[in-house]
Design a protein around this nucleic acid. Sequence first.
RNA 1: GUGGGCAUAGCUCAGUUGGUUAGAGCACCAGAUUGUGGUUCUGGGGGUCGCGGGUUCAAAUCCCGUUGCCCACCCCA
Length: 441
Amino acid sequence: MAKATFRAPRGTRDMLPEDLVLIQHLERTARSVAVSSGFAEIRTPFFEETRLFTRSLGETSDVVSKEMFTVPSRAAGGEDGGNSYTFRPEGTASVARAYVNGGYAAKAPLQKWYYLGPMFRYERPQKGRERQFTQFGVEAFGAASPLLDAEVVDLAVRFFEALGFGSELEVRVNTMGDPEDRDRWRERLKDYFRPQLATRCADCQDRFERNVFRLLDCKVPACVEANQGAPALAEVLGPEASAHHEGFLAALRALGREPVIDPSIVRGLDYYTRTVFEVHYPPLGARSALCGGGRYDGLVEEFGGQPTPGVGFAVGFTATELALQELGLPPAQDLADLEAELRPQVYVAAVSEDERGPALALASELRRAGVRPVVLDYRGKSLKAQLKEAGKSGAAFTVVLGADEVSTGTAVLRDMQAGEESSLPQPELAAQILRSASTTS
RNA sequence: GUGGGCAUAGCUCAGUUGGUUAGAGCACCAGAUUGUGGUUCUGGGGGUCGCGGGUUCAAAUCCCGUUGCCCACCCCA
Protein backbone atom coordinates (compact mmCIF):
# COMPACT_ATOMS: atom_id res chain seq x y z
CA MET A 1 0.00 0.00 0.00
CA ALA A 2 2.79 2.35 0.89
CA LYS A 3 4.19 1.64 -2.53
CA ALA A 4 1.14 3.06 -4.29
CA THR A 5 2.57 6.53 -4.57
CA PHE A 6 0.15 7.53 -7.29
CA ARG A 7 -3.59 7.43 -6.98
CA ALA A 8 -6.56 8.68 -8.92
CA PRO A 9 -6.81 12.46 -8.46
CA ARG A 10 -9.09 13.71 -5.75
CA GLY A 11 -12.72 13.38 -6.64
CA THR A 12 -12.05 10.92 -9.45
CA ARG A 13 -12.07 7.15 -9.48
CA ASP A 14 -11.13 4.22 -11.63
CA MET A 15 -14.04 2.36 -13.08
CA LEU A 16 -12.77 -1.18 -12.86
CA PRO A 17 -14.19 -4.00 -14.96
CA GLU A 18 -16.42 -5.17 -12.14
CA ASP A 19 -17.73 -1.63 -11.57
CA LEU A 20 -18.44 -1.22 -15.24
CA VAL A 21 -21.03 -3.95 -15.18
CA LEU A 22 -23.40 -1.54 -13.48
CA ILE A 23 -22.20 1.59 -15.26
CA GLN A 24 -22.59 0.06 -18.69
CA HIS A 25 -26.05 -1.03 -17.70
CA LEU A 26 -26.85 2.62 -16.95
CA GLU A 27 -25.37 3.69 -20.26
CA ARG A 28 -27.26 1.12 -22.26
CA THR A 29 -30.51 1.99 -20.53
CA ALA A 30 -29.97 5.70 -21.17
CA ARG A 31 -29.24 5.19 -24.86
CA SER A 32 -32.13 2.87 -25.35
CA VAL A 33 -34.64 5.19 -23.69
CA ALA A 34 -33.36 8.24 -25.57
CA VAL A 35 -33.33 6.53 -28.94
CA SER A 36 -36.84 5.22 -28.43
CA SER A 37 -38.03 8.83 -28.17
CA GLY A 38 -36.23 9.90 -31.29
CA PHE A 39 -33.19 11.47 -29.70
CA ALA A 40 -29.91 11.02 -31.56
CA GLU A 41 -26.50 11.03 -29.92
CA ILE A 42 -24.25 14.06 -30.09
CA ARG A 43 -20.69 14.28 -28.82
CA THR A 44 -18.99 17.57 -28.16
CA PRO A 45 -15.45 18.28 -26.93
CA PHE A 46 -14.70 17.73 -23.26
CA PHE A 47 -13.39 21.28 -23.04
CA GLU A 48 -14.58 24.57 -24.45
CA GLU A 49 -13.58 28.18 -24.42
CA THR A 50 -14.12 29.35 -20.87
CA ARG A 51 -16.37 32.15 -22.04
CA LEU A 52 -18.92 29.69 -23.34
CA PHE A 53 -19.70 28.73 -19.77
CA THR A 54 -19.39 32.13 -18.12
CA ARG A 55 -21.83 33.54 -20.67
CA SER A 56 -24.45 30.84 -20.40
CA LEU A 57 -24.33 29.73 -16.81
CA GLY A 58 -23.86 33.20 -15.37
CA GLU A 59 -20.78 34.81 -13.81
CA THR A 60 -22.27 34.63 -10.37
CA SER A 61 -23.39 31.01 -10.49
CA ASP A 62 -21.48 28.73 -8.14
CA VAL A 63 -20.36 26.60 -11.04
CA VAL A 64 -18.65 29.48 -12.79
CA SER A 65 -17.43 31.37 -9.78
CA LYS A 66 -15.66 28.55 -8.01
CA GLU A 67 -16.05 25.15 -9.63
CA MET A 68 -14.45 25.33 -13.05
CA PHE A 69 -11.49 23.26 -14.19
CA THR A 70 -9.81 25.91 -16.26
CA VAL A 71 -6.64 25.60 -18.31
CA PRO A 72 -4.95 28.98 -18.66
CA SER A 73 -4.02 30.21 -22.11
CA ARG A 74 -0.59 28.97 -23.12
CA ALA A 75 0.00 31.44 -25.90
CA ALA A 76 -1.53 34.85 -25.60
CA GLY A 77 -2.41 36.01 -29.08
CA GLY A 78 -1.23 32.69 -30.48
CA GLU A 79 -3.23 30.01 -32.18
CA ASP A 80 -5.75 29.86 -29.36
CA GLY A 81 -6.15 33.60 -29.44
CA GLY A 82 -5.16 33.89 -25.81
CA ASN A 83 -8.35 32.17 -24.69
CA SER A 84 -8.49 29.96 -21.69
CA TYR A 85 -10.26 26.63 -21.87
CA THR A 86 -12.47 24.93 -19.33
CA PHE A 87 -13.43 21.31 -18.97
CA ARG A 88 -17.18 21.22 -19.35
CA PRO A 89 -19.05 21.41 -16.06
CA GLU A 90 -22.31 20.50 -17.77
CA GLY A 91 -23.51 19.59 -21.22
CA THR A 92 -26.15 22.05 -22.34
CA ALA A 93 -23.86 24.94 -23.26
CA SER A 94 -21.69 22.80 -25.53
CA VAL A 95 -24.64 21.19 -27.22
CA ALA A 96 -26.30 24.55 -27.85
CA ARG A 97 -23.06 25.85 -29.32
CA ALA A 98 -22.84 22.82 -31.59
CA TYR A 99 -26.41 23.46 -32.69
CA VAL A 100 -25.50 27.00 -33.68
CA ASN A 101 -22.24 26.02 -35.40
CA GLY A 102 -23.99 23.24 -37.26
CA GLY A 103 -26.39 25.75 -38.76
CA TYR A 104 -29.46 23.80 -37.76
CA ALA A 105 -31.61 26.87 -37.19
CA ALA A 106 -31.77 27.36 -40.94
CA LYS A 107 -31.70 23.83 -42.28
CA ALA A 108 -33.56 21.76 -39.70
CA PRO A 109 -34.50 23.66 -36.57
CA LEU A 110 -36.13 20.81 -34.73
CA GLN A 111 -33.39 18.62 -33.28
CA LYS A 112 -33.61 16.11 -30.46
CA TRP A 113 -30.21 15.10 -29.16
CA TYR A 114 -28.80 13.19 -26.23
CA TYR A 115 -25.30 13.04 -24.80
CA LEU A 116 -23.52 10.77 -22.38
CA GLY A 117 -20.09 11.45 -20.98
CA PRO A 118 -17.85 12.95 -18.34
CA MET A 119 -18.34 16.39 -16.81
CA PHE A 120 -15.93 18.20 -14.52
CA ARG A 121 -16.42 20.42 -11.51
CA TYR A 122 -13.75 21.53 -9.09
CA GLU A 123 -15.67 20.84 -5.90
CA ARG A 124 -15.02 19.30 -2.54
CA PRO A 125 -15.92 15.67 -3.12
CA GLN A 126 -18.46 13.94 -0.90
CA LYS A 127 -21.03 11.21 -1.05
CA GLY A 128 -22.70 11.33 -4.43
CA ARG A 129 -20.47 14.06 -5.76
CA GLU A 130 -17.25 13.83 -7.72
CA ARG A 131 -14.94 16.13 -9.64
CA GLN A 132 -15.33 13.99 -12.71
CA PHE A 133 -18.75 12.48 -13.13
CA THR A 134 -20.82 11.03 -15.92
CA GLN A 135 -23.92 12.78 -17.09
CA PHE A 136 -26.67 11.62 -19.38
CA GLY A 137 -28.72 14.45 -20.80
CA VAL A 138 -31.08 15.29 -23.61
CA GLU A 139 -31.73 18.58 -25.38
CA ALA A 140 -34.59 19.35 -27.75
CA PHE A 141 -34.26 22.46 -29.90
CA GLY A 142 -36.60 24.32 -32.17
CA ALA A 143 -40.01 23.99 -30.56
CA ALA A 144 -41.59 26.18 -27.90
CA SER A 145 -44.52 23.89 -27.29
CA PRO A 146 -45.05 22.79 -23.70
CA LEU A 147 -45.77 19.35 -25.12
CA LEU A 148 -42.05 19.04 -25.71
CA ASP A 149 -41.30 20.00 -22.11
CA ALA A 150 -43.63 17.24 -21.01
CA GLU A 151 -42.09 14.71 -23.37
CA VAL A 152 -38.63 15.49 -22.00
CA VAL A 153 -39.87 14.99 -18.46
CA ASP A 154 -41.53 11.76 -19.48
CA LEU A 155 -38.26 10.55 -20.97
CA ALA A 156 -36.42 11.29 -17.73
CA VAL A 157 -38.97 9.36 -15.73
CA ARG A 158 -38.91 6.45 -18.14
CA PHE A 159 -35.15 6.23 -17.71
CA PHE A 160 -35.56 5.69 -13.99
CA GLU A 161 -38.47 3.33 -14.49
CA ALA A 162 -36.35 1.25 -16.84
CA LEU A 163 -33.75 1.00 -14.08
CA GLY A 164 -36.32 -0.40 -11.72
CA PHE A 165 -37.43 2.64 -9.74
CA GLY A 166 -41.01 2.28 -8.53
CA SER A 167 -44.17 4.30 -8.77
CA GLU A 168 -42.97 6.67 -6.03
CA LEU A 169 -41.08 8.61 -8.73
CA GLU A 170 -42.11 12.20 -8.42
CA VAL A 171 -42.00 15.01 -10.97
CA ARG A 172 -41.56 18.35 -9.25
CA VAL A 173 -42.12 21.37 -11.43
CA ASN A 174 -41.97 25.12 -11.32
CA THR A 175 -41.70 28.01 -13.72
CA MET A 176 -39.08 30.75 -13.80
CA GLY A 177 -41.12 32.81 -16.26
CA ASP A 178 -39.60 34.69 -19.16
CA PRO A 179 -36.42 36.71 -18.58
CA GLU A 180 -38.37 39.94 -18.08
CA ASP A 181 -40.61 38.21 -15.55
CA ARG A 182 -37.61 36.92 -13.74
CA ASP A 183 -35.94 40.33 -13.70
CA ARG A 184 -39.06 41.91 -12.27
CA TRP A 185 -39.40 39.16 -9.72
CA ARG A 186 -35.77 39.46 -8.72
CA GLU A 187 -36.21 43.16 -7.98
CA ARG A 188 -39.40 42.53 -6.04
CA LEU A 189 -37.66 39.89 -3.97
CA LYS A 190 -34.68 42.12 -3.27
CA ASP A 191 -36.98 44.94 -2.17
CA TYR A 192 -38.79 42.52 0.09
CA PHE A 193 -35.73 40.90 1.63
CA ARG A 194 -33.47 43.92 1.95
CA PRO A 195 -35.05 45.28 5.16
CA GLN A 196 -34.88 41.91 6.91
CA LEU A 197 -31.41 41.01 5.67
CA ALA A 198 -29.73 41.74 9.00
CA THR A 199 -31.86 39.13 10.72
CA ARG A 200 -31.39 36.41 8.11
CA CYS A 201 -28.84 33.60 8.41
CA ALA A 202 -25.30 34.08 7.14
CA ASP A 203 -25.95 31.96 4.05
CA CYS A 204 -28.95 34.04 3.10
CA GLN A 205 -26.94 37.24 3.41
CA ASP A 206 -24.42 35.78 1.06
CA ARG A 207 -27.06 34.48 -1.36
CA PHE A 208 -28.84 37.81 -1.49
CA GLU A 209 -26.44 39.26 -4.04
CA ARG A 210 -25.49 36.06 -5.75
CA ASN A 211 -28.93 34.57 -6.27
CA VAL A 212 -31.89 36.00 -4.40
CA PHE A 213 -34.16 33.17 -5.46
CA ARG A 214 -32.18 30.89 -3.18
CA LEU A 215 -33.46 32.68 -0.09
CA LEU A 216 -36.81 31.10 -0.87
CA ASP A 217 -35.67 27.56 -0.17
CA CYS A 218 -33.53 28.28 2.89
CA LYS A 219 -34.13 25.64 5.53
CA VAL A 220 -33.35 27.74 8.59
CA PRO A 221 -36.69 27.98 10.50
CA ALA A 222 -36.48 31.73 11.08
CA CYS A 223 -35.81 32.30 7.38
CA VAL A 224 -38.62 29.99 6.34
CA GLU A 225 -40.96 32.05 8.47
CA ALA A 226 -39.67 35.33 7.09
CA ASN A 227 -40.33 33.99 3.60
CA GLN A 228 -44.07 33.74 4.21
CA GLY A 229 -44.92 37.16 2.83
CA ALA A 230 -42.43 37.11 -0.04
CA PRO A 231 -43.78 38.15 -3.43
CA ALA A 232 -44.63 35.21 -5.71
CA LEU A 233 -43.56 34.92 -9.31
CA ALA A 234 -47.22 34.56 -10.22
CA GLU A 235 -47.67 38.24 -9.40
CA VAL A 236 -45.38 39.28 -12.22
CA LEU A 237 -45.66 36.32 -14.59
CA GLY A 238 -46.52 37.39 -18.13
CA PRO A 239 -49.57 35.87 -19.85
CA GLU A 240 -47.51 33.86 -22.35
CA ALA A 241 -45.26 32.28 -19.78
CA SER A 242 -48.29 31.63 -17.66
CA ALA A 243 -50.12 29.90 -20.50
CA HIS A 244 -47.02 27.85 -21.25
CA HIS A 245 -46.87 26.67 -17.68
CA GLU A 246 -50.53 25.66 -17.72
CA GLY A 247 -50.00 23.85 -21.00
CA PHE A 248 -47.02 22.04 -19.54
CA LEU A 249 -48.98 20.88 -16.51
CA ALA A 250 -51.85 19.73 -18.72
CA ALA A 251 -49.50 17.81 -20.99
CA LEU A 252 -47.90 16.07 -18.03
CA ARG A 253 -51.29 15.01 -16.77
CA ALA A 254 -52.16 13.72 -20.24
CA LEU A 255 -49.04 11.55 -20.00
CA GLY A 256 -50.13 10.29 -16.62
CA ARG A 257 -47.27 12.10 -14.89
CA GLU A 258 -49.08 14.00 -12.18
CA PRO A 259 -46.78 16.94 -11.39
CA VAL A 260 -46.00 18.19 -7.91
CA ILE A 261 -45.84 21.97 -8.06
CA ASP A 262 -42.82 23.06 -6.04
CA PRO A 263 -42.00 26.80 -5.99
CA SER A 264 -38.67 26.10 -4.32
CA ILE A 265 -37.24 24.61 -7.50
CA VAL A 266 -35.15 27.44 -8.83
CA ARG A 267 -32.08 25.80 -10.46
CA GLY A 268 -28.65 27.32 -10.16
CA LEU A 269 -27.98 28.25 -13.76
CA ASP A 270 -28.89 31.52 -15.43
CA TYR A 271 -30.10 30.18 -18.75
CA TYR A 272 -33.34 28.64 -17.57
CA THR A 273 -36.62 30.20 -18.69
CA ARG A 274 -40.17 29.12 -18.00
CA THR A 275 -40.16 25.41 -17.19
CA VAL A 276 -37.84 24.00 -14.55
CA PHE A 277 -38.24 20.55 -13.04
CA GLU A 278 -36.62 17.82 -11.00
CA VAL A 279 -37.35 14.13 -10.72
CA HIS A 280 -37.30 12.90 -7.15
CA TYR A 281 -37.56 9.54 -5.46
CA PRO A 282 -38.76 10.23 -1.90
CA PRO A 283 -37.80 6.78 -0.54
CA LEU A 284 -34.19 7.92 -0.82
CA GLY A 285 -34.68 10.59 1.84
CA ALA A 286 -32.45 13.62 1.84
CA ARG A 287 -30.77 12.68 -1.40
CA SER A 288 -33.96 12.10 -3.35
CA ALA A 289 -33.20 14.37 -6.33
CA LEU A 290 -32.26 12.24 -9.31
CA CYS A 291 -32.16 14.68 -12.17
CA GLY A 292 -32.97 18.23 -13.13
CA GLY A 293 -33.72 20.23 -16.19
CA GLY A 294 -35.80 22.87 -17.82
CA ARG A 295 -36.33 25.21 -20.72
CA TYR A 296 -33.69 27.63 -22.02
CA ASP A 297 -35.32 29.63 -24.79
CA GLY A 298 -32.66 32.32 -24.96
CA LEU A 299 -29.52 30.22 -24.99
CA VAL A 300 -29.11 29.59 -28.71
CA GLU A 301 -29.59 33.28 -29.42
CA GLU A 302 -27.07 34.09 -26.70
CA PHE A 303 -24.53 32.07 -28.69
CA GLY A 304 -25.23 34.03 -31.84
CA GLY A 305 -27.82 31.79 -33.42
CA GLN A 306 -31.34 32.54 -34.58
CA PRO A 307 -33.73 32.78 -31.65
CA THR A 308 -34.42 29.08 -30.98
CA PRO A 309 -36.24 27.58 -28.03
CA GLY A 310 -34.81 24.58 -26.23
CA VAL A 311 -35.58 22.25 -23.37
CA GLY A 312 -33.67 19.42 -21.71
CA PHE A 313 -32.49 17.67 -18.60
CA ALA A 314 -29.41 15.96 -17.22
CA VAL A 315 -28.88 13.02 -14.88
CA GLY A 316 -25.71 12.51 -12.91
CA PHE A 317 -24.70 8.88 -12.73
CA THR A 318 -22.89 9.23 -9.42
CA ALA A 319 -26.14 9.80 -7.56
CA THR A 320 -27.98 7.29 -9.70
CA GLU A 321 -25.49 4.56 -8.84
CA LEU A 322 -25.84 5.39 -5.18
CA ALA A 323 -29.61 5.28 -5.44
CA LEU A 324 -29.56 1.92 -7.20
CA GLN A 325 -27.33 0.57 -4.47
CA GLU A 326 -29.62 1.81 -1.73
CA LEU A 327 -32.67 0.38 -3.41
CA GLY A 328 -31.06 -2.97 -4.13
CA LEU A 329 -31.28 -2.53 -7.90
CA PRO A 330 -30.98 -4.09 -10.28
CA PRO A 331 -32.51 -7.29 -8.85
CA ALA A 332 -30.02 -10.06 -8.13
CA GLN A 333 -31.11 -12.09 -11.14
CA ASP A 334 -30.70 -9.19 -13.55
CA LEU A 335 -27.34 -8.34 -12.05
CA ALA A 336 -26.23 -11.94 -12.47
CA ASP A 337 -27.21 -11.79 -16.13
CA LEU A 338 -25.18 -8.61 -16.56
CA GLU A 339 -22.19 -10.12 -14.81
CA ALA A 340 -22.46 -13.24 -16.94
CA GLU A 341 -20.81 -11.27 -19.72
CA LEU A 342 -17.62 -11.16 -17.73
CA ARG A 343 -17.66 -14.90 -17.17
CA PRO A 344 -15.94 -17.16 -19.65
CA GLN A 345 -17.98 -19.81 -21.38
CA VAL A 346 -15.08 -22.19 -21.78
CA TYR A 347 -11.70 -22.73 -20.18
CA VAL A 348 -9.24 -24.73 -22.27
CA ALA A 349 -6.82 -26.70 -20.09
CA ALA A 350 -3.63 -28.46 -21.18
CA VAL A 351 -2.52 -31.58 -19.29
CA SER A 352 1.18 -31.11 -19.93
CA GLU A 353 3.48 -28.63 -21.61
CA ASP A 354 3.17 -30.58 -24.86
CA GLU A 355 -0.50 -29.67 -25.18
CA ARG A 356 -0.05 -25.93 -24.62
CA GLY A 357 0.22 -25.27 -28.34
CA PRO A 358 -2.73 -27.43 -29.34
CA ALA A 359 -4.78 -25.88 -26.50
CA LEU A 360 -4.07 -22.38 -27.79
CA ALA A 361 -5.05 -23.46 -31.30
CA LEU A 362 -8.23 -25.10 -30.05
CA ALA A 363 -9.17 -21.98 -28.05
CA SER A 364 -8.73 -19.90 -31.19
CA GLU A 365 -10.85 -22.37 -33.13
CA LEU A 366 -13.64 -22.16 -30.57
CA ARG A 367 -13.58 -18.36 -30.62
CA ARG A 368 -13.88 -18.41 -34.38
CA ALA A 369 -16.87 -20.71 -34.02
CA GLY A 370 -18.62 -18.13 -31.88
CA VAL A 371 -17.98 -19.45 -28.39
CA ARG A 372 -17.29 -16.50 -26.17
CA PRO A 373 -15.38 -15.81 -24.05
CA VAL A 374 -12.78 -18.58 -24.28
CA VAL A 375 -9.90 -18.42 -21.81
CA LEU A 376 -6.85 -20.49 -20.97
CA ASP A 377 -3.73 -20.51 -18.83
CA TYR A 378 -0.48 -18.79 -19.76
CA ARG A 379 1.42 -19.26 -16.54
CA GLY A 380 2.40 -22.89 -16.65
CA LYS A 381 -0.13 -23.96 -14.05
CA SER A 382 -0.65 -27.63 -13.33
CA LEU A 383 -3.80 -29.26 -14.64
CA LYS A 384 -5.18 -29.19 -11.14
CA ALA A 385 -4.53 -25.48 -10.84
CA GLN A 386 -6.05 -24.88 -14.25
CA LEU A 387 -9.23 -26.67 -13.20
CA LYS A 388 -9.28 -24.60 -10.06
CA GLU A 389 -8.90 -21.42 -12.02
CA ALA A 390 -11.61 -22.54 -14.43
CA GLY A 391 -13.97 -23.11 -11.54
CA LYS A 392 -13.22 -19.72 -10.05
CA SER A 393 -13.68 -17.97 -13.38
CA GLY A 394 -17.24 -19.20 -13.57
CA ALA A 395 -16.69 -20.95 -16.90
CA ALA A 396 -19.57 -23.26 -17.77
CA PHE A 397 -17.22 -25.79 -19.36
CA THR A 398 -13.60 -26.82 -19.29
CA VAL A 399 -12.03 -28.53 -22.26
CA VAL A 400 -9.20 -30.83 -21.19
CA LEU A 401 -6.53 -31.63 -23.74
CA GLY A 402 -3.96 -34.38 -23.06
CA ALA A 403 -1.64 -36.45 -25.18
CA ASP A 404 -4.34 -39.04 -25.93
CA GLU A 405 -6.83 -36.42 -27.05
CA VAL A 406 -4.31 -34.67 -29.26
CA SER A 407 -3.38 -37.89 -30.98
CA THR A 408 -6.99 -38.85 -31.63
CA GLY A 409 -8.28 -35.36 -32.42
CA THR A 410 -10.73 -35.47 -29.54
CA ALA A 411 -11.11 -33.53 -26.31
CA VAL A 412 -12.67 -34.02 -22.90
CA LEU A 413 -15.53 -31.63 -22.29
CA ARG A 414 -16.25 -31.11 -18.62
CA ASP A 415 -19.49 -29.56 -17.46
CA MET A 416 -18.26 -27.56 -14.47
CA GLN A 417 -21.55 -27.38 -12.68
CA ALA A 418 -22.59 -31.01 -13.05
CA GLY A 419 -19.06 -32.34 -12.78
CA GLU A 420 -19.74 -34.67 -15.69
CA GLU A 421 -17.45 -35.06 -18.63
CA SER A 422 -17.50 -36.69 -22.02
CA SER A 423 -15.04 -37.25 -24.81
CA LEU A 424 -15.89 -36.00 -28.25
CA PRO A 425 -14.24 -35.04 -31.54
CA GLN A 426 -12.80 -31.51 -31.45
CA PRO A 427 -14.93 -30.28 -34.39
CA GLU A 428 -18.07 -31.00 -32.38
CA LEU A 429 -17.04 -29.04 -29.28
CA ALA A 430 -18.30 -25.64 -30.31
CA ALA A 431 -21.73 -26.86 -31.32
CA GLN A 432 -22.11 -28.80 -28.09
CA ILE A 433 -21.11 -25.80 -25.97
CA LEU A 434 -23.31 -23.34 -27.82
CA ARG A 435 -26.28 -25.68 -27.69
CA SER A 436 -25.99 -26.01 -23.96
CA ALA A 437 -25.57 -22.25 -23.51
CA SER A 438 -28.75 -21.49 -25.42
CA THR A 439 -30.85 -23.89 -23.36
CA THR A 440 -29.69 -22.54 -20.01
CA SER A 441 -30.19 -18.88 -20.78
C1' G B 1 -14.29 27.98 1.41
C1' U B 2 -16.23 26.11 6.74
C1' G B 3 -16.90 22.08 10.34
C1' G B 4 -16.29 16.89 12.04
C1' G B 5 -14.39 11.65 11.78
C1' C B 6 -10.77 8.04 10.27
C1' A B 7 -5.68 6.44 8.73
C1' U B 8 -2.39 -1.38 10.95
C1' A B 9 -1.19 -6.97 5.11
C1' G B 10 -4.72 -6.84 -1.68
C1' C B 11 -9.81 -6.54 1.32
C1' U B 12 -12.53 -6.32 6.33
C1' C B 13 -10.55 -5.54 10.89
C1' A B 14 -7.98 -7.20 16.21
C1' G B 15 -4.07 -5.14 18.71
C1' U B 16 -5.58 -4.90 26.34
C1' U B 17 -3.17 0.77 31.35
C1' G B 18 3.21 2.12 25.69
C1' G B 19 7.18 -3.68 26.74
C1' U B 20 10.20 -9.50 23.47
C1' U B 21 10.87 -11.18 15.86
C1' A B 22 2.82 -6.92 14.75
C1' G B 23 -2.02 -10.76 14.48
C1' A B 24 -6.94 -12.98 12.51
C1' G B 25 -10.52 -13.92 8.67
C1' C B 26 -10.97 -13.59 3.48
C1' A B 27 -8.03 -13.40 -0.95
C1' C B 28 -3.44 -15.17 -3.30
C1' C B 29 0.50 -19.20 -4.25
C1' A B 30 2.18 -24.34 -3.52
C1' G B 31 1.57 -29.32 -1.78
C1' A B 32 -1.74 -33.81 0.27
C1' U B 33 1.49 -41.05 -4.82
C1' U B 34 1.14 -41.27 -10.83
C1' G B 35 -4.15 -36.40 -16.41
C1' U B 36 -8.84 -33.01 -12.98
C1' G B 37 -11.87 -27.69 -9.79
C1' G B 38 -15.67 -26.26 -6.14
C1' U B 39 -15.36 -29.22 0.81
C1' U B 40 -11.10 -30.29 4.07
C1' C B 41 -5.86 -30.37 5.81
C1' U B 42 -0.68 -28.54 5.65
C1' G B 43 2.78 -24.99 4.31
C1' G B 44 4.11 -20.20 2.01
C1' G B 45 4.56 -15.11 0.12
C1' G B 46 2.92 -10.28 1.63
C1' G B 47 3.03 -4.84 6.40
C1' U B 48 9.21 1.12 7.03
C1' C B 49 1.62 0.06 11.66
C1' G B 50 -0.12 7.18 6.00
C1' C B 51 4.31 10.51 6.42
C1' G B 52 7.70 13.73 9.56
C1' G B 53 9.21 15.23 14.26
C1' G B 54 8.91 14.82 19.76
C1' U B 55 8.39 12.32 24.84
C1' U B 56 10.51 7.53 26.76
C1' C B 57 15.18 2.55 28.53
C1' A B 58 11.07 1.16 25.05
C1' A B 59 5.53 3.68 20.69
C1' A B 60 1.11 0.79 16.08
C1' U B 61 -0.15 2.39 21.18
C1' C B 62 1.10 9.29 24.19
C1' C B 63 2.01 14.71 22.06
C1' C B 64 2.66 18.16 17.78
C1' G B 65 2.72 18.85 12.67
C1' U B 66 1.65 17.18 7.74
C1' U B 67 -0.77 14.50 3.81
C1' G B 68 -4.69 11.49 2.23
C1' C B 69 -9.59 9.58 2.54
C1' C B 70 -14.59 9.92 4.26
C1' C B 71 -18.95 12.69 6.05
C1' A B 72 -21.74 17.26 6.58
C1' C B 73 -22.53 22.61 5.14
C1' C B 74 -22.44 25.95 0.77
C1' C B 75 -24.00 24.42 -4.02
C1' C B 76 -25.31 20.84 -7.21
C1' A B 77 -25.75 15.98 -11.16
